[in-house]
Every structure is written in C-alpha cells, then in structure tokens.
C-alpha cells in the first residue's frame, strides 16, 4: 500500500510494507466491525414514540459475553501483531547483516556530511571521500552506516528506503541498509533541529557499479555537479500555483549568508 505513494528501494522496505498491510487488514476488520455495529445501533435504537429503553446492567454473563468474546479476539490479534512485528524489527534494527561497504553520516545544523569508505570499504583510510548533502551508494550492496551528530539531535531519514534513525551527539549509532533500485531519492532530517530544520535535506543516489565509480572519479577531480542542487533546481517549483519568487522565501537568503 505504501508503494503506491512512494517507491520502495531497499531490501527491508517491502518487509515494512508487508507488515503495514497485514496490520491494515486486521485493523480495518476491527474498525469496520466496530464502526458498523456503532452505526447500526444508532439507527436501530433511535428514539421512537412509546418505545422505552431496555434495562441492561451489563454485569450478567449472558450480557458481558457480547463485549468479552470480541475482546478475546482482540487479544489474539494483538499477539499476532506483536510476533510479526518483532520478527521484522529484529531483522532491520537489532541485527547487522554482513557488510559490503561502509559510510559515515554526520549531521550538523543544518547540513549533512557523508564520508564514503572508498574502494577499500573501510572508513578512516586515505581513500575516503567526503561530500556535503550528497550520498552515493551502490545498488545491491549492504551498507553499514555510522551515524553521528556534531551539535543537536538529527534524524537520518530516507523515506524510499523506509529508513530512519536518530543521530545523537556524543554517540555513534550503527545501522544498515541495502538499496535495491537505482535512482535519486530524498534524504531528510526528521528530528527538530532548529531554525534550518525544514531545509536540512540531501539527496541519496543509488548507482550501478560503473556509474558509482564514474561519480567518485568526478568528485575526486572536482568536476562533479551536486545531485542535490540539481534536483532542487529542477523540481522544487513543480506545483504550478507557486511562482518562482514566492517559493524562494527570505530563509534561503539567510542561509546563504550563514554558509
């Protein structure tokens, strides 16, 4: 159901989507049964002349079974949801699968720094490549990330990957993801981080192997054009109602003066 609104571009995205769908069926069933009963009772027992209401205390077993039996069913469904959820959670957050590559993600007010491990796949070596607001990854590689923050809380969130993790200053948080579809996606800060929180975005590009190496070469040579800038430049003004001057609020100017 979520794919309808946004692509799923990582290995665990469909796990989350499927869990969402199962829970939707369960919840939808309860919602329509409860809401249907509610509306039925309202119509069936609306005030009619000469009809007196019944006296039901709801304390005898013959009466309480009407609330207790559905209630046992709720408990059964709860257990099912908890069990399914723990399976998915253990997979995506609690365990780290073997890695193919490493990146370090550093949040600060109000931009992202990404350190790519380079060809040797290890961080803190001489072939590391750092970029600002542009993250490049290879498709079908399992990435481990080290998430850090320089000042306040940030949140490394890539909706297309169904990935989200807070960055806490003073700590390194480890996690993983495995992109499965090439393309460029939004990367947002999802934890209130102050004045510029609303524009603390970045672009994450999933490349094929060849493409990735080419981009890395461009970055080294300095001929690289930021995907983030390019994307914002072409797509930001998309809604027809907003004229170009208007969508550029004073804020961009303020930021330009800060950096």
């Amino acid at each position: 159901m979520i794919e309808f609104f946004i692509e799923n571009a990582s290995s665990f995205a469909s796990d989350i989507d499927n869990l969402f769908e199962v829970v939707t069926w369960i919840i939808g069933f309860w919602f329509f049964v409860t809401f249907g009963t509610f509306v039925y009772l309202l119509i069936r027992f609306r005030r009619k002349k000469g009809v007196k209401a019944q006296y039901v205390a709801g304390e005898k077993h013959s009466e309480t079974k009407w609330t207790h039996y559905p209630h046992y069913a709720v408990i059964a469904f709860d257990v099912a949801i908890i069990a399914l959820n723990i399976f998915v959670w253990v997979d995506i957050k609690q365990t780290l699968p073997p890695r193919d590559n490493m990146i370090r993600v550093i949040g600060q007010q109000w931009s992202w720094t990404f350190v790519h491990a380079g060809p040797d796949g290890e961080l803190d070596t001489s072939d590391d490549i750092a970029t600002a607001n542009d993250l490049h990854v290879k498709v079908d590689n399992t990435y481990h990330f080290e998430l850090q923050s320089r000042d306040v809380l940030h949140n490394f969130s890539v909706p297309a990957f169904r990935l989200r993790q807070d960055a806490v200053p003073g700590r390194t948080i480890n996690g993983w993801f495995k992109p499965t579809k090439t393309g460029t996606y939004d990367l947002q800060c999802a934890e209130m981080c102050g004045y510029g929180h609303g524009i603390m975005g970045a672009a994450i590009t999933v490349h094929t192997e060849a493409n990735f190496n080419e981009t890395m070469d461009q970055i080294k040579k300095g001929t690289y054009e930021s995907h983030y800038q390019k994307r914002r430049g072409t797509k930001t003004e998309a809604p027809s109602k907003i004229s170009k001057e208007n969508s550029k609020s004073t804020f961009t100017d303020v930021l330009a003066s800060i950096f």
Binding site: F5, I6, P159, Q188, A238
Partner: peptide, 18 residues
C-alpha cells in the same frame, strides 16, 4: 504514507514531496 516528515516549513524543498 508518502514520507512527509513533521515540522518542515516548506515541503517544496523536497522533490519527492513537491
């Protein structure tokens, strides 16, 4: 569902959300 986050003052800055 479309991945729109809270407390962002202008979603048009995000191409996927614009």
């Amino acid at each position: 569902l479309a991945g729109q986050n809270r407390r962002v003052y202008n979603f048009l800055n995000y191409p996927d959300l614009a």
